[in-house]
Design a binder for these strands. Sequence first.
DNA 1: GACTCTTGGAGAAACGTATCTTCAGACCGG
DNA 2: CCGGTCTGAAGATACGTTTCTCCAAGAGTC
Lengths: 390, 390
Amino acid sequence: MTAAANQSGRRSTSRRLERAGIRDVAAAAGVSITTVSDALNGKGRLPDETRSRVREVAERLGYRPSAAARTLRTGRSGLIGLTVTTYGEEPFTFTEFAYFAEMARAATSAALGRGFALVVLPASSRHDVWSNIALDGTVVIDPPDQDPLVTELYRSGVPVVSDGKPGNCPVTAWVDNDHEAAVLDILEHLSEAGARRIGLLTGTSTDTYTRLSTEAYLGWCHRVGQEPVYEAYPAHDPAAGAVAADRLLARPDRPDAVYGLFDPNGTDLLAAARRYGLRVPDDLLLVCCSESDVYAGTEPPITTLSLKPRKIGTTVVNLLIDAIEGVDSGTGAAAGGRGEGARLFPPRFRTAGTGPPPGTLMPTELIVRASSQRRSPRRTVSPPRTPGKV
Amino acid sequence: MTAAANQSGRRSTSRRLERAGIRDVAAAAGVSITTVSDALNGKGRLPDETRSRVREVAERLGYRPSAAARTLRTGRSGLIGLTVTTYGEEPFTFTEFAYFAEMARAATSAALGRGFALVVLPASSRHDVWSNIALDGTVVIDPPDQDPLVTELYRSGVPVVSDGKPGNCPVTAWVDNDHEAAVLDILEHLSEAGARRIGLLTGTSTDTYTRLSTEAYLGWCHRVGQEPVYEAYPAHDPAAGAVAADRLLARPDRPDAVYGLFDPNGTDLLAAARRYGLRVPDDLLLVCCSESDVYAGTEPPITTLSLKPRKIGTTVVNLLIDAIEGVDSGTGAAAGGRGEGARLFPPRFRTAGTGPPPGTLMPTELIVRASSQRRSPRRTVSPPRTPGKV
DNA sequence: GACTCTTGGAGAAACGTATCTTCAGACCGG
DNA sequence: CCGGTCTGAAGATACGTTTCTCCAAGAGTC
């Protein structure tokens, strides 16, 4: 009795109803484990006849390779983390704003298309959950400065791509909109529509989006010679947004045009305007940043800035997977092919060419509707800003 | 030279920069890997001194246990699949409707609280992606009849809990609203507000929600003696929804009250009413099913039915994890502790007590606003229907 | 002083796959 | 007839844990 036969025999007596393993397939097909593995994965040198026979047997037995074993062996899980930011008490904002929802959807779809699946992981989740999952890489949305999580992941060799230009933490790559350009575009658009004093509804948090947008506004005010007129509120609190919108329109130096940085600002501003008897767009021009199409149906329809979350999600995931597959093939070839000599120059992961990580800027889209035009409404689209490496 | 020393020596010379493994920790702490494992996992019998020393060394080396190895050994990945339905061309609806978004958020949060993470997997995704992931269980949203995916998962021993009463496929458990009761509630509410002829805006798809709701409406019409007045459209197409809303109000037998089954119906109906010069609620009473709070701010505010997706998401996940942990401890004890004798009664997974899978009905909430009341608006909440096992 | 318990911990066997290495035989030119 | 190449496939090892089994030494007991 050979060792193999003994093993398979022991298996079959001690556990009956378990899932079929590769050994069972091998035994049933009368070949070795190696042959089964090769046949199923399209590797090795096997005649087509053997290959198809093995496949057939595997199918018949309902064989499903163990993902865990494969991951352990190959070092690849096919899993990508999707980190979502946490605001306040609520577990996480995920889908709080349409932006996240759209972005996550596109990211999931893009990942799936390349054979990866997404694991949703709030940044606030317990460390043990994080480290209990074999991730090939991580997408992180708008990491705060010095994010310890990102830093640890990056240091432990997991590629990290961020949506939103990262502050101080090292990432493999990042993707963001050109927020400054977008804000300047809008301010210019409002000025052309006749605005004399443009106000801003912004947030109190320190994420990149809020910061860059606000700075762009303040810089523009300074250049143009307008006194800044803005209200800031905690963006995660919708009720605070309504209050802030009201406050903005109640000021003695009430603006005649407002840009709101967050999704629900449009309706809030509209409601506030109504309360103060302001007609939009006649007395007040309105633009807000939103991915929602409800603003096409409001009275009047409101001009919105889209950050194109779908494009961003897709790009982020593709960059990440490029890094995952690139890293692995690169070190694999260098370490495997060379032998002892290579030790003099230990392969550095992703550190080759130390410099700022490559960033990509994505164009935004201004969807012009009635709320920001004093003349007849007409729908235009801003020319796409050329995306470029930075 | 002991075997262990030899091994660790070989390791350290051949691979320098790799992550620290449990062996490295053991060597550094001067103990065996068993002790390290026990110390870190709180098992075995070890004095606190040893435990803390090992923990400290592990911390110093930045040791992170390999999730893949752990999963392979324990058979548990800590991963739960979240299947989302696919409509039409788009990859998947996930977050298309606020319902899904809320439900997914609650599910993620609940899972995380119990140490599990969620993997988002469209039902349409390639089979190889599914089988490449080690899932401890799956949440499936509104599975169609005879869903092959669900059937295979269930048969291969993976617990499956569905959101939405499943048609013909076997599941471990399911959770759903009492859609029939909810619709009857609304029809009654509208009747009390003075409606003489109630119309329905429904979908053409065959999912449980659409089917049960429509049937409840038709049954009610039959009982009350009203001729049904409804329009159906493909729910995944927002444009078709607007058209259907228009069509419904353009009919010669125009209803004086409408219930819309899908989220955007409220605004669509409002717009259509405006087009036909109908005042809400004076000429037309309106209710729609939605989780969005934009309907609190419309003119007039619209009464909505909430399906309480958060509760459903939480419940679904908790049921699933209960099943996961229950199953495992059960078979583990039976198979491991008994030895040969147990073979006479092979452990059956989740089949004990063959009958319909346990279902849970969750109460819905009717948020009454101005659109469905002819008198002064007042905000009430329907008494929670008693949830019960079926 | 022989005995049982208890404590602290080591050894080694899985878990199920992928892959590196080896090997037997067929084929082939000289 | 013989060394070499090519084909088809088997053996063995490693991936990094967890856990079952077992052992040595000290503590208590009669």
